[in-house]
Structures are given as C-alpha cells and as structure tokens.
C-alpha cells in the first residue's frame, strides 16, 4: 500500500522534483560566481570585512529559493488532485484517508528536504571555499530559516490548494504568506539564533493542519 502510494506520487512529481533540483544546483553554481566576484575584483579582506563587520548578507540571493521549490512541489503534487476532483479516487482507496494524505505530504516533504539538504551542502561548500568556518556556520544559521520556510511553503501550498471554498482559500493564503514572511524579517546574519526552535516548532502545526481541509473536501468539496 505504502509502495503504491509512493509510486503514484513519485510518478506524478518526479519531473518537477528533478527540474527543481537542477534549478537549485544551477542557482548555486551562479551563487559561486557571484560570491567569487569581489575576491577577483578587489582585496579579499574587503569581502571578508563586508561580510563580517558591515554585516552584509552576501548570499541573500538564495533567500527564496527553497520556498519557491516548496511551492512548486506543492502545486505539482496537489493541483492534479483537485482538478476534476481527482482526489476522490485516492479517498475511495481502502486506506484511512488521513493516513493517505499524511503519506502524500510526507513524500512532498521528503522531496523538499532532499533538495534542501543538497542546497545546504552546496551552500556550505561554496562559502567555506572563500571564508573561514565562522562565516560558513553563521551563513548556515542565517540560511536555516530560509530553508525551513521551504517546508512551510510546501505545506501551506497544499492547504491552500486542498481547501475547497475560495473565500477561505484567500484567508489561508494571506495568513500563510504572512507566516512564511516571519522567516524573512531580518536583514542581519544569525539573527534567528534564539528563535529558530520556537519558529520551527510552531511551524510543525502545519502538518496536522492538512487534515481539516481534507475533511472539508471529503464532506462536500465536490459540487
């Protein structure tokens, strides 16, 4: 059962996941050249100074990469399910619908996490090439909320898509966008250090939140 579920979701999203992965990798190649530029055009120490003491976030361009990836995967996975209400087919399977949707979401989360981990590794490799380890760890600390917001963006997208009524959908979209905005409120490195856990924990609420739109879908989503 799990295998079938995984099989179907993978068939559905594989090209999008691979496409997103390629795009992410290309983006980091671009980031590499972007970070290298000041080292080639001026004294390296000034690039360091700017990064460490002017507090310039020189890798800011990657900010929205993972949330965009999360939204893409959410769309790829759930838009086909709600067009023509195809989700009906899944809901009729001899499986607990909550577990089924949870496994769908887990598959999407897994895809976002895999891309996110590859991103983090590439990011670290690039920064450590040019900067001391203190800067790389600070960059990771700074980037972590951005990467994590990718998961939230994915989950928020699935909710907005699964919700059946447009009014409520707009409400969710506004609230969830604002929530995702919480991960992007600072232009200072490492500034989420004290609140990362808190933010991450409350974001976990997005996982059980998926059951309510599903419940609404099951009880009158198709008209």
């Amino acid at each position: 059962m799990i295998r079938s579920t995984f099989y179907k979701e993978w068939l559905k999203i594989r090209y999008y996941v691979l496409g997103a992965l390629v795009f992410n990798i290309l983006f980091f190649i671009y980031l590499f050249f972007d970070i290298r530029e000041p080292f080639q055009n001026g004294p390296a120490i000034m690039a360091w100074y700017s990064a460490i003491h002017i507090h310039t976030i020189f890798y800011e361009k990657i900010k929205y990469l993972l949330p965009a990836t999360g939204i893409l995967i959410g769309i790829a996975q759930f838009i086909p399910e709600i067009t023509k209400s195809r989700l009906r087919m899944s809901l009729h399977l001899p499986v607990n619908p909550n577990l089924l949707i949870l496994s769908y979401v887990c598959i999407g989360i897994a895809a976002v996490i895999v891309i996110g981990i590859i991103d983090i590794i590439l990011f670290y490799i690039i920064v450590i090439k040019f900067f001391p380890k203190e800067v790389s760890s600070s960059a990771l600390m700074t980037g972590l909320p951005w990467f994590y917001s990718g998961l939230v963006a994915y989950l928020a997208t699935t909710q907005v898509i699964l919700e059946t009524k447009s009014g409520r959908r707009i409400f969710y979209a506004v609230i969830f966008c604002r929530f995702i905005g919480l991960f992007f409120m600072s232009n200072e490195y490492s500034s989420y250090a004290h609140v990362t856990e808190r933010l991450f924990l409350i974001s976990l609420l997005f996982i059980p939140a998926i059951f309510f739109p599903l419940y609404r879908f099951r009880n009158g989503g198709i008209e």
Partner: peptide, 24 residues
C-alpha cells in the same frame, strides 16, 4: 467507483496504473 468522465490519473501509463491500484 466510476467517476463521471472516466476519471483517471492521466500521468500514468496502462501498466503503471494497474501496478498502482493492485497494491491496494
């Protein structure tokens, strides 16, 4: 269930959809 309009997962092939449903 046969849904209106012969709903099916269009992204699957003949063999894939059989493999998918057989698991359940």
């Amino acid at each position: 269930l046969l849904h209106e309009g012969h709903l099916a997962y269009e992204f699957m092939t003949i063999a894939q959809i059989e493999r998918y449903y057989s698991g359940y």
